[in-house]
Design a protein around this nucleic acid. Sequence first.
DNA 1: GTGGTCTAGACCACC
DNA 2: GTGGTCTAGACCACC
Lengths: 121, 121, 121, 121
Amino acid sequence: MGFDSSLPIYQQIIDAYKKSLIRGEIQTGDKILSQREYALKARINPNTVQRAYREMEMIKMVETLRGQGTYICATDIMLEQFKEEMAGQVLNYFISEMKSLGFDDHEIKNRLNTQLEGGNK
Amino acid sequence: MGFDSSLPIYQQIIDAYKKSLIRGEIQTGDKILSQREYALKARINPNTVQRAYREMEMIKMVETLRGQGTYICATDIMLEQFKEEMAGQVLNYFISEMKSLGFDDHEIKNRLNTQLEGGNK
Amino acid sequence: MGFDSSLPIYQQIIDAYKKSLIRGEIQTGDKILSQREYALKARINPNTVQRAYREMEMIKMVETLRGQGTYICATDIMLEQFKEEMAGQVLNYFISEMKSLGFDDHEIKNRLNTQLEGGNK
Amino acid sequence: MGFDSSLPIYQQIIDAYKKSLIRGEIQTGDKILSQREYALKARINPNTVQRAYREMEMIKMVETLRGQGTYICATDIMLEQFKEEMAGQVLNYFISEMKSLGFDDHEIKNRLNTQLEGGNK
DNA sequence: GTGGTCTAGACCACC
DNA sequence: GTGGTCTAGACCACC
């Protein structure tokens, strides 16, 4: 429940839900936190949560029943898309971090291979 | 100047300075922010900043001149160590993120190759 | 620049732009009012205007150039959709108003025919 | 209780009462809001309300008993007239909206028939 | 100047 | 209780 500064908070909320879906921690049909609960737990403004929830609703990732709450309604196809999207983000972030540390493409690949073989925790 | 929740904040402060050094944004001889200034800008507790600065002093990455401020004093060898250290962190974070999205070692390598060839902005 | 109370203001802003597009008063490529200007003229909060502009951007009806302004970028196909959408709204509003005045389907048709033939200003 | 900009507000007040009468929401003998109450609820100038009430009195749609309030006193014949009047307004508004969207007489009739048959909620 | 994000808080509608 | 809309206003980034 901590937010870093690179992406807008509402986007981080959405990404976190997408990741939870991919990992199977939540699934279609599940009720998610109410906007107020989320805002309280994350100590952010309810309006910020609402923007995230509204955008998730617009892409039909969740559906909202007035007075009842918000429910996941993502299809398997959407899950695949989210997985691609999140993987792309993770990859780009990784590559840009490595490059900013001074590694070129070749070195990045080598380091990854070494790390994967050497066994990372 | 935003901190996420995974690492202790003082550690994130140190890492940020290490990365700035590697990237050449700051170098040996440069004066860095006073603890007070840092705490104000980052809106964190001065004690947290103090711990970070103390640890950087212990490994002789910076030195503090009383009444004058804190100065970078890292050697080239230290820079190399920092680079390895930071690369390891970035790699481990990348690998664990990809795995939590459901990718195995083979897929991770493939994705990286594709992304590097496809050209990421 | 007056808003009635039935639809949310941000929706009325969007509908007004859709109608202007259909009527040819504005067209693709045109720059529209800045959010601040619109808010000032309509005497509403800039945040309300922003929500309308953001939603128009999400459906690719306009595009926003940071620091420069917002421009219409609707395609002809979108215009056709907007026309259907607005016609549907107008029709439904008309029918519900007539029914609430006590007219049935048959009478509504008759009244419309009479009015169209009798010549309305 | 929201007013749009096309008609003068006092006229909109009168029309709203006429519609309420036609719909049977209020009837002859009922006491209506005091001018002061109306102005407060609708957040408009008391003078505007006064003009509406005065005009309703002139056509003997309401009567004001000093110190007691204002009461509906419309006859059935007046109700019929109001119904015609309101229907005419609704029709004219509908036709002008459809024409401004680019529909001709023939299309307007067709659309209405389709909508009525298709069943609008 | 432009738009983008966020907070704080009011008030409403639906249940 | 739930979400939806709106205002007021701060602060930021890009130009």
